[in-house]
Amino acid sequence: MTDYVIVTGASKGLGLAICQQAAAQGYGIIALARSCSEQLSSLQQTYPERVHYYAADLADLNNLSVLCKTLIKQHGRPYALINNAAAGHDGVLATMPNSAIEHLMQLNIQAPILLSKYLVRSMMLNRKGRIINISSIIAKTGFNGLSVYAASKAALEGFTKSLAREVGKAGITVNCVAPGYMQTDMTSSLQGDKLDSIKRRSPLGQLATVNDAANMVIYLLSEQAGSITGATMTVDAGSTA
């Protein structure tokens, strides 16, 4: 049976790139997103046996247990979970609506914790597995207007280290990938001088792309990465060097 990988936030940006690369590598894909994009549909058409899409709003925390149960029933025990879905509401904290803070924390940290909880159990029975959490360099560097987002990503990195210690004995690795600024829908508001200044500060004079970050995810999924756990792998074209 093909090892399958559950990817959240799979319809666009980094999530989509991960699905594209993982499907090309031969993994089965369970793509979770609120709605299916044209590119994800086209990926399904390319690999009809391998790529499956499920509509899910992960901020709806009470449904996550049933969702995981359904996926395991349909597809068997997963090999990997990639917690990629995230919201990136920006704005100064002092005027951020409480509902936006709550939504961001539910989607960015509570949902990954609960999905990991429900899916790591099956990985334990398999005595192998991978959990890859998509963090951000902002967890460590900070960024004006992204305090809540940064808090959620720093929480994800702390969660990763402790869970890695908890499940290592069962042959499961847990890691973070921390991309720098990538040109995705989430960073589309970053334009002009700000964008130029980020590019200038990078030793490579460019931004990392979603494919660069997806390459790292694919590596962490592989057997070759079996001895890497509890780590945060930065993919930022050297911006934080």
Partner: peptide, 21 residues
């Protein structure tokens, strides 16, 4: 504790229930 978590997972597969959730 890991074995205990595995027991809950195994029983969820065998019986289709996770009473704790």
């Amino acid at each position: 504790s890991l074995g205990y978590a595995m027991l809950v997972a195994q029983l969820e597969e065998d019986l289709g229930i996770d009473p704790f959730t």
